[in-house]
Simulated scan of single mutants.
Amino acid sequence: MATEHFSNRFQDLDTWSSLDVLSAFYEGQLSAVAAIRPSLPAIAAAAEEAAVRLRKGGRLVYVGAGTSGRIGVQDGTELPPTFNWPDDKVVYLIAGGHGALMKAVENAEDSVEEGIAGIRDNNIGPNDVVIGVAASGRTPFTIAALKEAASRGAQTIGISNNAEAPILDACSHPILADTGEEVIAGSTRMKAGTAQKVILNLLSSLIMVRMGRVYRGLMVNMRATNAKLRRRSEIMVMQITDCDEATAADAIRQAGGDLKTAVLIALGASAHEAQGALERNDGNLRQALANLPKLKN
């Protein structure tokens, strides 16, 4: 596996100056991001299908072991505050259980049975989107989970850093970032981990865009859980509607803090009209605006 290869270039790394070591690390990070470009079409296709399934009530399911599992959790936990994605629509299947997020659990990644059980115990079905992440692409736990999910009709996405890895054949949407050998041999928390995080950023963010949770490049579904975010909500309403600060604040108050509803109120709709328009358009603000021609947009 390329991610496990030893590089002669770095065999004396520990004798280099700190700046030279950092330069090598930095170059590795840049190459990791560059390795993703060939997979952009695959990421786009996976996101398009995921949005269709999730609109039917499906869940995002992150599967992984070790570093890959932790990166999946990091991506998933950012979706509720950023896009107001429901907490109960995110599932984490981590080899060794949630305790493995803080401490390595020996041999957990080798358990085929645990991978299958995680899918069965969570009753994964056709509307769910299962994302398996494995640098090696050979992790038995993750591959078993993907295969079980596929047998239940779920969409399966496999992310690997090694070409021709088994995980890429075990899913409906293979995504490869061939990051090659690591500066520190086998330390896939480096290049491979960076590529995985970027891929998940791209994938989940595009899914949220396709789900109508972004409008004009703004996070119109975010949760305003503190003073900073409440102020940001007011600014976004002002930006979208060209209203003044007092109007924006009042609209947000009438909308109970829901930014999209507040936008429609600031444009002249009543709270009831705004809520109804969003319900009829699956929460998509752009579509709601288009179907309320009396409102400026």
Score class of each variant (00 low, 15 high):
289 L>N: 03
126 P>Y: 02
246 A>V: 09
221 N>K: 08
102 M>L: 14
282 D>A: 10
220 V>Y: 06
295 L>G: 12
266 A>S: 12
162 N>T: 13
3 T>L: 05
38 P>D: 03
125 G>L: 03
145 A>H: 02
33 V>N: 05
22 L>G: 10
134 A>W: 02
277 A>R: 01
35 A>I: 06
221 N>F: 12
267 L>F: 01
146 L>F: 13
202 L>Q: 09
187 S>G: 09
169 D>M: 06
94 I>E: 01
136 S>E: 01
65 A>N: 12
43 I>N: 01
56 K>N: 07
9 R>N: 15
23 S>D: 06
87 D>Q: 14
27 E>P: 04
271 A>K: 12
46 A>M: 08
195 A>V: 11
31 S>L: 02
24 A>V: 05
262 A>W: 05
216 R>L: 15
289 L>P: 04
2 A>T: 13
138 R>G: 08
69 G>Y: 02
182 E>N: 12
245 E>Y: 08
270 S>E: 11
20 D>K: 15
70 R>I: 09
22 L>A: 15
101 L>C: 11
109 E>H: 10
51 A>Y: 10
147 K>P: 00
26 Y>Q: 09
44 A>F: 11
72 G>E: 04
50 A>R: 07
277 A>F: 04
142 T>Q: 02
71 I>V: 13
247 T>C: 09
139 T>V: 02
191 K>L: 11
154 A>D: 01
214 V>R: 04
2 A>F: 11
